[in-house]
Nucleic acid binder design. Structure first.
Length: 547
RNA sequence: GUCCUCAUAGCUCAGCUGGAUAGAGCAUGCGCCUUCUAAGCGCACGGUCGGGGGUUCGAAUCCCUCUGAGGACGCCA
């Protein structure tokens, strides 16, 4: 809660205590910003909540609470009982203006929450297979995951960002075979990409690069040797490309974990042995099953196939075990919707390994359906028709793409009109916020704010609105982080920008009626600029000083 | 068939722990630049919150059910 709401809760808490000898916890006191101006700056519904418990009607309770508050030295200009029993509050101006010096002092630190070392969070996101370009579906997860990480860090959480590289398994062999075919094609040989291989253009490019460097040196290798080589070359190229694309998209990771390294370090065998030892596995028709049904899954899952190889699940279990053993308390995974059926078995596996399934949070990122020319545009790395994230960035820019994806909750189905997203930029909502920031900067370029301690002239309705929004910023960060809903930050950004545009239109800063008012508005403008800039930073969108 | 996620304005989406008259953007219509950036502001138009029950002072929000959309149900990854 913000500083003002904190104070209001204290006041209400003590009033209820005096009036009814009842101790309310802070969490039970709801303070809201009414949508309607006449309902004051803040309102609370405590009286209605207490009605049942006190066996009295809400308005009577509200009246007693107001009477108690009025006996004290309170910060209100007006207290009013309305509707079914709301208490509406209009706070004194100095309560609102106190936020300005706070922001100017804290500057880039405004909004930072108290550091919470525990629990520690591991946020795993994107984790796209290194078999082709990132497509817009990944971009949605990338934008949301990165913004969530930034927001949680800012809110004070201990966060580590992680990418799981699936560099072992069949899909990689398919990639290797496909790349090999492409290379041989470049060498002028008549070689077909396997039916179930990857047909994307990106492999042609990589094959060409390999050819440019090595010419046809790898042309006559024996099949096995050749596939192994192209597996290595392909992985190097694909992972490098992934890292570059993600960097371009301003997504950072603290840890990259390779699936292959789990095997190399013996972690897969270790995880398997642990499951066996704890008695959660059994043999059936030559395969080894994990009894996930013991923990709520609808059927048991194969860990080791009858041919002796592992299923995808096995290294993934080892990976999650590894994350827990590296000391993270809470594991957050951002998975595509096509993996949601996978959640029960992963949670079951954690339980089987004596960890709590509640410590694994899988947030599903729904598919982003691409629309082009009014028709759905299917994305497939294999058909080669996919729009790459890089194409999207080239067309629309990182800021616009990130804002677009972060501004919508991850769990809703979403349509992205490629024509719209890549068309004339002024239609894009991100510019609304950036433009507000640029406007502030252009004022602040003309005249710098001075240190003042009197803000008593900021009485305009738009000024009050703006200060309320500014005071609310830390709370939005906390909500956004604890609910793991980064799109709330976009709502805040829009609110903040809108508040400023509106103020800008009605209140002249540099040409204010008198010098004192000008200085106060300059300070307010600086405070908004700081807040908006900080907020944009949290979703990885730039705050330009000129546009 | 079983399970998961969703369904809010013409379109794309918000709606924070249940609150007062459900909000933005785009689209449409009308105003506002001799004044700090008009990528803006103001006003208007537009919704049985998919249908039906229930819970309660009060439901878009919670529960049940039906319908519809997408997804998952492999000894693929």
């Amino acid at each position: 809660m913000n500083a003002i709401e904190f104070k209001l809760r204290q006041i209400i808490q003590s009033a209820v205590l005096t009036a009814y000898n009842l101790e309310l916890s802070f969490d039970d006191i709801v303070i809201e910003n009414p949508k309607i101006k006449e309902h004051g700056d803040y309102s609370t519904n405590v009286a209605m909540q207490l009605a049942k418990q006190l066996k009295n009607n809400p308005r009577a309770i509200a009246s007693s609470i107001v009477t108690e508050i009025e006996k004290t030295a309170h910060p209100f200009d007006k207290l009013e009982i309305a509707g079914a029993g709301f208490i509406n509050m209009v706070v004194k101006l100095e309560v609102l203006t106190s936020i300005i010096p706070t922001i100017l002092n804290e500057d880039e630190k405004y909004g930072l929450g108290q550091t919470k070392e525990h629990p520690s969070f591991n946020i795993e996101y994107v984790s796209a297979n290194p078999t082709g370009d990132l497509h817009p579906g990944h971009a949605r997860g990338a934008a949301i995951g990165d913004a969530l990480s930034r927001i949680m860090k800012c809110a004070g959480y201990n966060v580590s960002r992680e990418y799981y590289i699936n560099d072992a398994g069949n899909q990689i062999n398919n990639m290797a075979k496909s790349l090999r075919a492409r290379y041989l094609q470049v060498c002028g040989l008549n070689e077909e990409v396997p039916e179930d291989g990857y047909h994307g253009k990106d492999l042609i490019d990589i094959a060409q690069e390999i050819y440019d460097i090595n010419k046809d040196a790898y042309k006559d290798l024996a099949y096995e040797e050749s596939v192994a080589l192209f597996k290595k070359l392909g992985l190097e190229a694909e992972i490098l490309k992934l890292k570059k694309d993600l960097e371009l998209f301003r997504c950072e990771f603290d840890v990259w974990t390779s699936e292959q390294s789990l095997y190399d370090r013996g972690l897969v065998i270790a995880a398997l042995e642990k499951l066996k030892k704890l008695g959660h596995t059994y043999d059936h028709e030559g395969a080894l099953f994990l009894k996930t049904t013991d923990y709520g899954d609808d059927k048991d899952r194969v860990l080791v196939k009858s041919d002796g190889t592992y299923t995808y699940l096995m290294p993934d279990i080892a990976y999650h075990l590894d994350k827990k053993e590296r000391g993270y308390d809470q594991l957050v995974n951002l998975w595509g919707a096509d993996h949601h059926g996978y959640i029960p078995r992963m949670k079951a596996a954690l339980e089987a390994l004596d960890y709590k399934s509640e410590d694994l949070h899988v947030d599903i990122i729904q598919m982003a359906r691409m629309i082009k020319d009014g028709e759905e545009f299917k994305l497939s790395k294999r058909t080669g028709k996919a729009v790459a994230l890089k194409d999207l960035i080239d067309e629309a820019g990182v800021d616009a793409v990130r804002y677009y994806f972060v501004s919508k909750a991850g769990d809703t189905h979403m349509d992205l009109d490629l024509d719209m997203a890549t068309s004339s930029s002024s239609e894009n909502p991100v510019y609304y916020a950036q433009y507000a920031h640029a406007r502030m900067c252009s004022i602040l370029r003309v005249e710098s704010p001075q240190e003042i301690n009197d803000y008593s002239l900021l009485t305009h309705e738009k000024e009050r609105d703006l200060m309320m929004i500014l005071a609310d910023y830390p709370q939005w960060i906390q909500n956004s982080a604890s609910l793991r809903q980064p799109h709330l930050m976009c709502l805040y950004i829009h609110k903040c920008a809108s508040g400023f545009h509106s103020f800008y239109n009605e209140c002249s800063v540099l040409k204010a009626d008198d010098e004192a008012l000008k200085l106060q508005r300059l300070a307010l403008t600086k405070a908004v600029q700081i807040t908006l800039r900080n907020a944009l930073e949290l979703i990885g969108v730039s705050a330009p000083e000129k546009m």
